[in-house]
Design a protein around this nucleic acid. Structure first.
Length: 811
DNA sequence: CTAGGGTTAG
């Protein structure tokens, strides 16, 4: 808050003391002038001054009325200002310019233009043109601003300092090349404006903006900017901060710091610029150092300083530091000032939720008197990030104004919590509400397609993305890698990965996970090594994907080595999820005792994921005793989870111990645990077809059953023998074979064979893990029908071709 | 009445 007024200004005392029923026009003018000098908060006093005028029967006209209108505009009482304006029979150019500026500030260039066009040419002046040019520039329409500048000169108006400064700002919006800078630089010199400080400042900021463009060399343009700065005859506050922020934006903090250190009187703005540079680079301790130095030098922190420091704490999840800063603010700032610090409160909401304190974030939110859109979006993100979707929805519904971010937060939040259909509904609603989705919104929608395995829809989104020019977006690219991979098109995922202009750890993690899920362990590990070569540091997720990849491909030793290197080489302490994957890795290789040892030597008590991995390993290798032990632990921890019962029953069934199988099933019944029914689906002609186990719902299911019957006879001739140990019920063997033939994945594959054109790959998705007999049968189908069949089950992908599966029967 | 610098939401 610039020039914050003393507190007494918030009461009407100031006016009451000087109030005089016979105040003259000159006295009112003086009073308003005084308010104007005291800074922005005092604009809010317009109603008080106006009330006094009304009470004393004074009718404001001319200059005084204009100033009153200006004050109403600036204290966001715009509607009232407009009413006063409309009552003037023939408003002069000053009144009109005031309104143009107000429309400009509230992002309504069309309304501003309307006032401007209705202003007769004979009363127009340079200031009026300046306002309109600035309005275009503020609303990102550089070309319109430049057109108006040319028009103004054509009509004989002389540009002044303000004009040049504004127009340079507008030119910066459209210029992105070194050549532009040089041309404009020449034009400024020719116009004779090159000695005006504000014009040179604008020129410097033009060089800075062009330096940020990917088409030009940052260092040479910044060198030119610096030359302009060094040669300036009269530098003002803005000259210093423009060059400092220029360096900060171009990520040259050392150069910024050098200029900063050379300032005699360092302004708050300059401090804030430096701090924001350190925040963006994640240099938290440099941020704190600057914050403390300001304090010890007696330079007052303002709301920009606070928001910067708080966001540094939020990014680094330094909860205690953030809390201390919060306490410091409450101690230091006078109470009335707090209402003006909405940005600080918004930053506090973010601090608290990023540190996992959702309810504290909520109480900050509730304490804000006049919440803005950022407050609402911040609390929305808080609930979404915590998976509290219900509360998030209720916040979303309460919002009177929503912008792109509000929608995007909802879309990506729903997608990340597996609510793909809902997310896509929001994406479509957003479009129909007239908002153009940004690349983040797209990445949420694409993630939903990954969740739903909706390949066609995902492809369409990809096409739209390219049309809108978002194809170089990092977040959209990362989402596409995952989407194509999870829809079974590994090649497309790799193509996206290869054509992305830059990659971050998320991109690498997504690609490594894709190779891993498709059983390409070697490529996954190869990409991990490439990632290191590219100097991208692996994170917790990287190791989860690497360990999974090793597990899926049976690379036990490699996996163990990577696990051991986590802490030693990369300083990442393995969490429970990492241990669960290590155990999974060991179990699959039959090293059950080693896996059990890990559970005993781990630095924490084993939880459900650990026992689940162990139980799955015991089922695979028939270790009944250890399996039962693991299951008992799981019954204690998550008694309602159906997976435990199924794994245990499967384990007994494959050993032919039907008594125990029946017992497990009785347990399930007694405890009211329901098995999630098997369900498979595939896309045919852009429509999703779902098959349940023993399906009777799909309209064409009879044709599927009869073709399946035919097919099984054919497969038997090739050597297929139904493996009835995968049927959990104890029944006659013929019945068992029938039960096998109703599995949803078989139905879906057969539907694909019937409906998809010859040679087209069949892509099936299943909610649970694929059953052993189906796995075997589909191998035979791929040979008999000469088809590539890809099945994504609950854990991974199986590529069937020529009677073989990419998983090597190892899943 | 008009210009140019620093902040917060994924």
């Amino acid at each position: 808050m610039k020039n914050a007024a003393p507190n007494s200004f918030y009461s009407h005392q100031y006016f009451r003391r000087t109030a005089d029923i016979s105040a003259t026009a000159n006295q009112y003018a003086a009073k308003l002038q005084l308010c104007f000098q005291r800074g922005p908060p005092v604009y809010a006093l317009a109603p008080a001054v106006h009330a006094h005028m009304i009470a004393s029967g004074f009718i404001p006209r001319g200059h005084i009325l204009n100033r009153l209108i200006d004050f109403y505009c600036k204290s966001s009482n715009f509607n009232y200002a407009k009413r006063l304006f409309d009552e003037i029979p023939q408003p002069d150019v000053v009144a009109r310019t005031t309104l143009i500026a107000a429309y400009s500030a509230s992002g309504k260039p069309k309304m501003a233009r309307e006032i401007f066009d209705k202003t007769p040419l004979r009363i127009r002046d340079t200031v009026c043109y300046n306002s309109m040019i600035t309005c275009y520039s503020h609303n990102n329409d550089g070309h319109a601003a430049i057109r108006l500048f040319n028009e103004m000169r054509q009509k004989g108006f002389r540009p002044d300092n303000f004009t040049y400064t504004s127009v340079l700002g507008a030119l910066a919006l459209v210029a992105d090349h070194e050549r532009h800078c040089q041309q404009l630089h020449c034009a400024v010199v020719k116009s004779g404006a090159a000695s005006i400080t504000s014009v040179v400042n604008a020129l410097i900021s033009l060089y800075v903006k062009c330096a940020l463009s990917p088409f030009s060399s940052s260092s040479s343009l910044m060198a030119s900017a610096r030359e302009l700065f060094d040669e300036m005859l009269e530098k003002d506050e803005l000259s210093w901060t423009t060059i400092i922020t220029g360096y900060v934006k171009n990520e040259d903090l050392d150069a910024a710091r050098e200029v900063f250190d050379g300032m005699d009187e360092k302004l708050v703005v300059a401090w804030n610029a430096m701090i924001s540079g350190y925040v963006q680079k994640g240099m938290v301790f440099a941020v704190f150092e600057m914050f403390r130095k300001m304090h010890s030098l007696g330079i007052k922190h303002d709301d920009f300083t606070y928001t910067n420091v708080l966001s540094a704490c939020a990014d680094a999840e330094l909860f205690l530091h953030g809390k201390q800063v919060h306490a410091y603010i409450l101690r230091t700032e006078a109470k009335p000032a707090r209402d003006f610090m909405i940005s600080v409160n918004n930053a506090l909401i973010t601090l608290y939720w990023k540190c996992g304190k959702i309810d504290q974030a909520r109480s900050i939110f509730d304490s804000i008197c006049t919440k803005d859109l950022i407050s609402w979006n911040a609390i929305l993100s808080a609930y979404v990030s915590a998976g509290r979707i219900h509360e998030a929805r209720s916040i979303f519904d309460q919002m009177s104004e929503k912008n792109m971010l509000s929608w995007t937060v909802m879309i990506s939040g729903l997608a990340q919590h597996g609510l793909g259909e809902e997310a896509l509904k929001f994406f479509n609603k957003m479009k129909s509400s007239g908002l153009e989705p940004c690349d983040y919104a797209f990445s949420g929608a694409i993630t939903s397609c990954a969740v739903l395995a909706a390949l066609e829809q995902g492809r369409q989104l990809h096409a739209q993305l390219i049309r809108l020019g978002f194809d170089s977006s990092l977040s959209a690219g990362n989402a596409l890698i995952t989407m194509y991979s999870r829809c079974g098109v590994l090649d497309a995922a790799r193509n996206v990965f290869l054509t992305m202009p830059c990659l971050d750890s998320v991109s690498w993690n997504a690609m490594i996970a894709a190779f891993g899920q498709h059983g390409h362990g070697a490529e996954a590990l190869e990409h991990f090594e490439y990632m290191l070569e590219e100097q991208i540091l692996p994170d917790r997720i990287t190791f989860l994907t690497v360990l999974s990849a090793c597990s899926h491909a049976g690379l036990v030793e490699e996996g163990q080595n990577y696990f051991n290197s986590m802490e030693k080489v990369y300083g990442i302490t393995p969490g429970e999820d990492h241990y669960a994957r290590l155990i999974d890795l060991l179990c699959r290789a039959g090293k059950l005792m080693e896996a059990k040892n890990v559970t005993q030597t781990m630095p924490f008590q084993p939880g459900a994921p650990i026992w689940e991995a162990l139980l799955a390993g015991c089922r695979l290798h028939g270790d009944m005793d250890l399996g039962v032990y693991a299951a008992e632990q799981l019954f204690e921890m998550i008694p309602q989870h159906d997976g435990t019962y199924i794994l245990l029953a499967n384990m007994f069934a494959s050993a032919g111990r039907w008594g125990e199988v029946a017992m497990v099933r009785k347990f399930m019944r007694d405890r009211g645990v329901k098995k999630e029914p098997g369900c498979s689906w595939l896309e045919v002609e852009n429509k999703v077809h779902v098959f349940l186990v023993d399906d009777t719902v799909h309209p064409e299911v009879q044709a599927v059953y009869s073709y399946l019957k035919e097919l099984v006879l054919k497969l038997r001739k090739l050597g297929y023998v139904p493996d009835t140990k995968y049927v959990l019920h104890d029944m006659e063997s013929e019945q068992k074979e029938h039960a096998l033939s109703t599995h949803s994945e078989k139905l879906a594959v057969v539907y694909g064979l019937l409906k998809l054109p010859r040679g087209a790959t069949i892509r099936i998705f299943k909610n649970l893990r694929i059953c052993g007999d189906c796995h075997n049968a589909i191998k035979f189908m791929s040979k008999a029908e000469a088809r590539e069949i890809i099945v994504r089950d609950g854990k991974r992908f199986h590529h069937f071709k020529d009677g073989e599966c990419s998983c090597g029967n190892y899943w």
